[in-house]
Computed example of a mutant assay.
Amino acid sequence: MAGCALLADGAGGTGFWSQIINFDHYGELLGLVQNSLFAGVLLGLVGGLAGVFVVMRDLPFAVHGISELSFAGASAALLAGVNIVAGSIAGSLIAAGAIGLLGVRARDRNAVIGIIMPFGLGLGVLFLSLYKGRAANKFGILTGQIIAVSTPETAWLLGTSLVVLLALAIVWRPLTFASVDPEVAAARGVPVRALSLAFMLVLGLAVALCVQIVGALLVLSLLVTPAAAAARITASPLLLPVLSVVFALCAMEGGILLSLGGTVPVSPYVTTIAFALYLGCRLVAARRTARRPGARGPGSPRDAVRSHT
């Protein structure tokens, strides 16, 4: 009976699928999301470029840990009635600094992240439980709310994105060297430890930006999936960041446009597109390998860069 009712609702345009994809009055709605589309471009650039080093340096777990304190910072800002983006950035930087300073070795880093994650999540839940305002505000911190990006929030996103992109441009070459072969880089005078801490802080800013879009729970879809997808089909250190950015932009802009007519948050659309791109890249890589017996795939981004240096 419930299934029949669902099908009947779907036939009338008010059922399950109409809540997910609905193009009624789409043209009118499209004119209202210019800020959101612009923010999506910024986050596609930030997520795609930062994600290259996240995958290369094996930091997906760190991204998740930082997102938990970013969630706590945003929740605290919501409770205090101040700028949520600022609170999210503050929480991310605290987590990134702690991970960068305390987790020099991979084993230490994972332990620190494992401690920070439940602490940040617990604080976030506490602050949200104390908040008595609109439930949609609570939900937005967890799942993103880019469709409602205001002009002041766009200014925050633009300023922070420019800081991240400028920092990545400055440290790109030495950070790549330090990520590929830290021992040799240190022997040649590259400040490996300082670069690691600097990147963790940059990553903290990137996580805070992405939390505004897909929420604290699904931030990996922007900072890991596009770069991981690109690494499946290219071994070029030049093409890898380009494809990573293209995939991140496709997920962001496509997710925003698809979610415009629906009633669910933007994050499921972004994560689904990103996952579909990753699956597609895996299939392409598998077909290439099948056509060339004995051939290996592009491997990890670290191996790809090492082969070109």
Rank of each mutant, 00 (worst) to 15 (best):
I233R: 04
P301D: 01
L168R: 08
K132W: 12
S236C: 07
S75D: 05
K132P: 10
A50T: 12
D181G: 07
L218T: 03
S221K: 00
E253W: 11
F53Y: 13
N35T: 10
F199W: 08
P118D: 08
I113E: 06
N137D: 14
G12D: 13
A227T: 00
N22R: 11
T289V: 14
P268Y: 10
G65M: 05
L123G: 03
V270S: 05
S244L: 02
H64Q: 14
T151P: 12
L279Q: 02
L142E: 10
V82N: 07
R232N: 00
F71S: 04
L29V: 09
V219K: 01
L195A: 09
G280F: 11
A185E: 01
L79N: 06
V46A: 07
G51Y: 00
A304M: 02
M1L: 14
G27D: 12
S129K: 14
F38Y: 13
R291G: 14
G280S: 04
P237V: 08
L157R: 08
A274E: 01
T263S: 15
G91P: 05
A76S: 10
M252K: 03
R188H: 15
L217I: 13
S70H: 10
I21E: 10
L162Q: 09
A178G: 08
G81M: 09
V192W: 00
A11C: 13
G120W: 02
I99C: 01
G114T: 02
L126G: 04
A187M: 14
S18V: 01
T143Y: 12
R291E: 12
A216V: 01
R173K: 15
V55F: 00
I233P: 02
L162R: 05
A77R: 05
I89C: 08
L130M: 14
G15H: 07
C281V: 00
Y278D: 00
I66A: 04
G65Y: 01
G15D: 01
V211W: 09
V82K: 08
A235D: 15
T234H: 04
I213T: 15
L197T: 10
F71R: 06
E253R: 10
L102D: 10
L49G: 05
T309E: 15
V82D: 04
V207H: 04
R282F: 13
A80T: 08
E28C: 06
P226T: 00
A5Y: 13
